[in-house]
């Protein structure tokens, strides 16, 4: 695995001067994933925070070839780019190996782009799809997505006098991707660069479709101080709210925290969960803990069965 010193000699895929919020995690995901590639990369991004803020004409923060098409079609768009590349390679017009990486937020991946992603994975294109998952539609103002956790306050499922934020458990997209039987699926966080770049390196070493789901705290939508982006992600890992694991050819490998902390440790630092701590909402927190435990145990069982 490449050391930070070694990574620092590679091309930074992004320049400064983009318009993401101070402390935004999305560019950190991009940098850690793409710098893991020794080979040239070509990027497609779904519409979203990352895309609008990095490519305001005539300013592009991408130093690598970049294409944006629309919101729900990063998977399909990359399918076309990759097919073109395979054609050029077949005809001897391109020789160098290229890693194709598509980025989508959770809205563009879990929800509106799921069909396009599923199709691209099923067809076996040689590409890595990375979901920079901040658990809501942040670009349009913190609306709930299929990735939003139960209880979180969003603008389309707000906490109010009667309802306490999102009423449904989040969709487990990573397991949906595992069910595609693609060679490599992983969950990671920002805040653990060595794990994330190792996973990206692993993904780049495998031909075929790969998927990595990266939890990326959003200071605007989650509500915390901008310097805590990485720390908060690590809290999600330590509480097993966001398990960090990989599935290579169907075999599970889980990174287990030294000590599994209670979910409260994760929830309490965020404005989006603040209402859960009001008197009367104790059961909601207990429910969340129970569901986190259930999913964690299920995952452990999957690892155990091999």
């Amino acid at each position: 695995m490449a050391s930070l010193k070694e990574l620092s000699t590679r091309k930074d895929p992004l320049t400064g001067g983009h318009r993401m919020c101070p402390g935004c995690g999305a560019p950190i995901v991009v940098r850690q994933i793409l710098m893991a590639s020794k080979d040239p990369v070509v990027v497609v991004s779904a519409t979203g925070c990352l895309e609008v803020s990095t490519t305001i004409f005539p300013y592009s923060a991408w130093t690598v070839p970049f294409l944006h098409n629309a919101f729900e079609n990063a998977g399909a768009t990359m399918s076309g780019v990759e097919a073109a590349y395979q054609n050029l390679k077949k005809k001897g017009k391109m020789t160098e190996h290229v890693n194709f990486v598509a980025f989508g937020g959770d809205g563009g991946t879990y929800d509106i782009g799921l069909q396009s992603l599923s199709g691209a994975m099923e067809r076996g294109h040689d590409m890595l799809y990375v979901c920079y998952n901040n658990e809501a539609y942040m670009n349009t103002g913190v609306q709930r997505s299929g990735a939003t956790p139960m209880g979180a306050n969003t603008t389309t499922e707000p906490a109010g006098k009667v309802l306490q934020g999102k009423r449904e458990w989040r969709k487990d997209l990573t397991e949906i991707m595992v069910a595609h039987s693609i060679p490599y699926v992983a969950q990671g966080i920002i805040g653990n660069w060595s794990d994330l770049t190792r996973k990206a390196e692993k993904a780049f070493s495998i031909r075929g479709p790969k998927f990595i789901n990266v939890l990326q705290p959003c200071r605007l939508g989650w509500g915390y101080k901008p310097d805590s982006t990485l720390e908060l992600a690590r809290r999600a890992y330590e509480t097993c709210v966001w398990p960090v694991y990989e599935v290579e050819n169907g075999v599970y490998k889980i990174s287990k925290p030294k000590e599994k902390k209670p979910v409260v440790e994760y929830l309490k630092g965020q404005d989006r969960f603040r209402h859960l701590f009001k008197p009367g909402n104790e059961k909601l927190i207990a429910d969340i803990q129970a569901e986190v435990d259930r999913r964690w145990n299920l995952l452990l069982a999957k690892e155990a069965t091999k």
Binding site: G16, G17, H18, I56, Y59
Partner: peptide, 18 residues
């Protein structure tokens, strides 16, 4: 066709956001 050279955002200063 809505294309720019890579990396032009370097010319855009965001230091004054601090």
């Amino acid at each position: 066709g809505d294309v720019v050279k890579a990396g032009t955002a370097a010319e855009f200063k965001t230091g004054d956001w601090r």
